[in-house]
Simulated scan of single mutants.
Amino acid sequence: ACRHTHTHTHTHTPSLPSPSLCLACFSLLLVTAGTAPGACPPGAGREPLQVHARSYNHLEGDVRLRRLYSANKFFLCIDKTGKVDGTRRKNYADSLMEIRSVSVGVVAIKSVSTGLYLAMSKKGTLFGSVKYNPSCKFKERIEENGYNTYASLRWKHSGRQMFVSLNGRGKPRRGHKARRRHPSTHFLPMLPS
């Protein structure tokens, strides 16, 4: 039995961090040891904080300037014609993105230089859209390896999510051909240097 007797104290159950917790602090909490709820922690009087977060708890309207760097070593970019591509050039103007939180875990991605929004068509094709619309909403999720995936909020293919993806040559893959665990769908939001 695991019973602790304390005088003038009460047990405090840790709560999840508030949505306004800064990204840096929040990312430190992602890797935590998990114990079953209510179980006695081994040799300690306190249970570790449990956080099973798979999306950023950004406040609506939060804006980040980032370059989306793929696990395939390309920066996602949108040119002025609306073509979505990957580039190896580190400070390429068309790769600087404004990532705006539109609801919890859902973002809109806009090229700062061209003003075009990243969008996905019903067929899973990526393109730059002049106007912000439901095709420009993506579910942002932190994967186990620390990279992010971006899945279309509006469109699915045979019930499966369609992901933003760049292949090994830096070309966009159709959303239905990409899978969550595939490196082509994994991006690191990097601070502009």
Rank of each mutant, 00 (worst) to 15 (best):
S135F: 07
S121Q: 06
L23I: 14
R174Y: 13
S121D: 07
S15D: 15
D79K: 00
P183R: 01
R89N: 14
G175K: 00
S18Q: 13
S165Y: 00
K90F: 12
L153Y: 07
T5E: 04
H10P: 03
G168A: 14
G34L: 11
Y132N: 11
I78R: 07
R179A: 05
N133S: 15
D62P: 10
G128H: 07
T5I: 13
C2M: 09
A36T: 14
A1E: 14
T11K: 06
R160V: 14
S184Q: 12
N57Y: 10
G115E: 12
V112N: 03
S193K: 13
P134F: 04
R160I: 03
R174L: 14
A1Y: 12
N145T: 06
T9L: 08
G146S: 05
G61S: 09
A93F: 10
R174G: 07
L21G: 02
V63E: 14
A151G: 02
A33H: 12
D62H: 13
I109T: 09
L116Q: 01
V106Q: 09
L59Y: 09
Y132K: 13
G82F: 02
N91S: 10
K73T: 12
L23P: 08
V130C: 01
R64L: 10
C22M: 05
T7C: 15
R64F: 09
K73Y: 14
F187A: 02
T114N: 00
F75C: 09
S95Y: 07
S111D: 15
R154L: 09
R88I: 11
G170M: 08
A39F: 11
S103M: 13
A33R: 12
L68R: 04
N167G: 08
A53N: 07
G82C: 00
V112W: 04
G175V: 02
S193G: 03
E47F: 03
T81M: 06
G61I: 08
L23Y: 12
F26A: 06
C22I: 04
S158L: 10
K90A: 05
A178Y: 04
G146V: 09
G105E: 01
L116G: 01
V130T: 02
N145M: 06
H157G: 06
G159K: 11
L76F: 03
P192Y: 02
L191V: 14
M162K: 00
E143Q: 01
S158R: 00
S184F: 04
S20C: 14
P37Q: 13
T11W: 03
A53T: 10
H8G: 08
P19R: 07
F138C: 03
A1R: 09
V102R: 13
K177C: 04
L23C: 06
P37H: 12
M190G: 05
I142V: 01
R46N: 02
G45L: 08
L30T: 12
L16I: 06
S184E: 15
S113L: 11
S121F: 11
L23N: 02
L191E: 13
L65E: 15
Y132I: 04
T149K: 00
L116H: 01
V106W: 01
L118T: 08
V51E: 14
L96W: 03
F75Q: 05
T114G: 12
M162Y: 05
C136L: 02
A151E: 01
G124E: 05
S20E: 09
I78Y: 06
V102G: 13
